[in-house]
Design a protein around this nucleic acid. Sequence first.
DNA 1: ACCTGAACACCGTTCAAGT
DNA 2: ACCTGAACACCGTTCAAGT
Lengths: 205, 205
Amino acid sequence: MTRGQGPGRPRTKPADERRIDLLDAGQAVFVERGIAAARLDEITERAGVAKGTFYLYFESKGHLAAALRERVVDELIDHQREAVDRLPPEAFGARVDRWLEDAIRAYIQHADLHDLLFEHATASTPIHSGITPENRHIDALRDVLAARIDPPADAPDADTAAILIYAAFHGAAHYLLHERETDRVDAIIAATQQLARRYLLIESV
Amino acid sequence: MTRGQGPGRPRTKPADERRIDLLDAGQAVFVERGIAAARLDEITERAGVAKGTFYLYFESKGHLAAALRERVVDELIDHQREAVDRLPPEAFGARVDRWLEDAIRAYIQHADLHDLLFEHATASTPIHSGITPENRHIDALRDVLAARIDPPADAPDADTAAILIYAAFHGAAHYLLHERETDRVDAIIAATQQLARRYLLIESV
DNA sequence: ACCTGAACACCGTTCAAGT
DNA sequence: ACCTGAACACCGTTCAAGT
């Protein structure tokens, strides 16, 4: 019996792959059932491992959720950086607009997942909502804001502005998820952009 | 043995009082341990009832947390309405400023409690973060915004503005809780007020 | 090294019985 | 009507053993 083939195939895998299997399985089951109602045995079954294997890779169910959030945020940050970097550095208003629009659309598009990861918690390891000093998505927005060329003297500092604008967009997107009508997405994007432009003293085009 | 005295005292109480006992006990234990780690038997012990009695008053641990949040929000709304109503109706900017300052200070002052109730969830009944259409605190802010006399033509509508400004302040206050230094409170209040004034096109005094 | 899965532990919830 | 508390049910987590 050769390695990796047939019923006698080795039951081990590189740790990196197993971890991804568990992340993928966890994401699927979390979206289906919610974090609290997701059972570990369903996650491990879907990942093709025994129940105990889970604890070789994650400390707890809550830590799996935290790792998933990291993964989602990383993807989002990369995607948005690319989108914004296609715009010229001096087009500050357009860059902020683009960042916000992309963020809100991504949030809505993967509504189930984001809603879960940012707003729920498990019994053993509570997860905080996104708005903390550890949120790298806020850092990414701060980078966009800090790259402003010749800001007006009374513009807010990038640090504070990033927190407030991030909180506004994040809350608004979350609010949308709990509304029935989805056709308000464009209106909320426009409103968030307007808030950012006025607060940051960006002249309208 | 007279009623309500000594070891033979009746073991029943009006339902209203029991409910308050359970809310108070729940609040204390939740703050001490967090919602997830709080055990029902500790809550019922502190409330002076048997474990099973809990389920005569609340459907689950999550529903107790939801009821506590209702109570906290109601108190907050009343307190802020009073504070704002001491200002003249035409002083729109001052009314918004006051509302935001009060809200942030209350949030920080009862940090443990608010952090719990708005950002965590229990195993059985997940609690959403505050920013949903069901949040009456947002309604209260909308009322303040909608009472503006002669708003500028391009001011945002009260509905949208309430969501965005509420999300901004709520997120900012939450962010503060997770920072070490508390002396940024005043700066965050001022920044939130500045954001609201600029977004709402309120002339600075 | 990596994995297994039966057994354990820890509560949230229920329910038959009590005053 | 209101309350009791022992028993149950449901997993998350552990750990001795396997390849």
